[in-house]
Amino acid sequence: MMSLLQACFIVLFAPFLQGVIKRLKARMQGRTGPSIWQPYRELRKYFHKGAVVSDQASIVTRLVPYGQFALIFSAALTLPLFTVDRQTLLASGNLFLFIYLLGFARLLTALLGMDSGSAFGGMGVSRDLFVALLVEPTVFLAILSAGLLSKGFSFAGITLHLLSHPGQGLTLTTLLAAAALLMIVITETGRLPIDNPDTHLELTMIHEGAILDLSGRALGLMSLGAWMKQLLWISVFFDTCLPYGMATDTAPNDVLYGVIIWVGKVLLFGVVLAFIESVTAKMRLFTVPRFLTLALSLSLFALLSNYVGA
């Protein structure tokens, strides 16, 4: 029940975070920027508008937006956000399940991008999957090495372990894993220096390329899905590295406290993201692997520290 509530919270809160980041970024760059409620307005607009569909498009274009949304929602069910509930809805080896659910969503998005037969779609999809090649193992290794000390490989288990042994959060392993995860979160949320969320320039876009041919409800759902994914990855970072302040039961007071802390943490992370976006330049596509291999090496060291250290 609690996980259902948390997942719904993700759906409702994701556009807000996007709005906040955009606004902050604009402020840091000396612009006024759109209102923080702008993403909600955009969604409203997309959902009310009709759609223009390519003559090449098949059933894939009709189904995938809904499927992708459902998958990201299912992934949200496996994560503890503001309370650790032992009884998470999906079985407890869920680190693997989480990554593969998002992988499925990515695969569906890829098919969607190829569906209109446009070169932009293919380009975005090809790049997206290419970046994923390094992202998926890295994020897995990072979480695994942070979680090796806890029993079972669920986010709930890792979080509970950290909450009951707060000192574990400062070990070399966790710090290295945190650094790797941070880099991955930046990549996975489609932000600078990997991807630029604010552009439709064919030379730079990754995620925007895949959804370029969409309009109407499909575009709304895909955008909402992308924002939810962003929030999910931020939550993954907090679950594995900084779960402090999270409730461990479902008592209303504790949960309320957990919500407040969580929102604070997420917004703080948003500030960090906006700051990074304002001070870095976009990388060329082929320098991205260097960035990601750095993250990969960090997570490998995190893993090694489990086997070599004291």
Partner: peptide, 14 residues
């Protein structure tokens, strides 16, 4: 995953 998207996307779509 890349292989799968490639087969289906290039071979069956467009």
């Amino acid at each position: 995953a890349l292989m799968a998207a490639r087969i289906f996307g290039v071979g069956f779509q467009g």
